[in-house]
Amino acid sequence: MMTGSYPSEVVRVVCALLSPFILLFGIYVIAHGHYGPGGGFAGGVFVAVGVILPRLTLQEELAFKLVPTALGPVAAGVGLLLFLLIGTVPLLTGGAFLDYGAVEVAGVEPARMRYLGILVVEVAVGLAVSGAMLMLFDVLVARRTR
């Protein structure tokens, strides 16, 4: 069990300062991934790094209280379910899997629907990837779910 904080004051302070911004950058990468570099996978990794850095450097109780261990599997499951749900909706209206243009909503043209659908899928993939990374870290340090 990893107990205690990182023994160097410098590393503790710098990581505590930087990890919220890393988390924010991950959310930014996820959110603009459909028209820029990155996307769900890279953004999910950044979000996971922003959560893992406090676990490596802060006191164990504090870090695991900030982001509990159970959040990893929950985020991964919710992301996967959201992805499957969004992917299956066009099947009901006669389109192919992940073909959001086939969904007809009054007042929204198909291009706009595709844009929104890709955005939701990126968010779902980001949730799944970050949850899986968090779960991997917690398994590697043998942290049991309470």
């Binding site: 930087l18 990155g38 990794v45 490596l56």
Partner: peptide, 20 residues
């Protein structure tokens, strides 16, 4: 520049983890 920022962020994780 976005890619560079991401690269710098991920490169920062390695020394902290191995130092720990």
């Amino acid at each position: 520049f976005d890619i560079a920022l991401g690269f710098a962020l991920l490169a920062f994780l390695l020394p902290i983890t191995l130092g720990r």
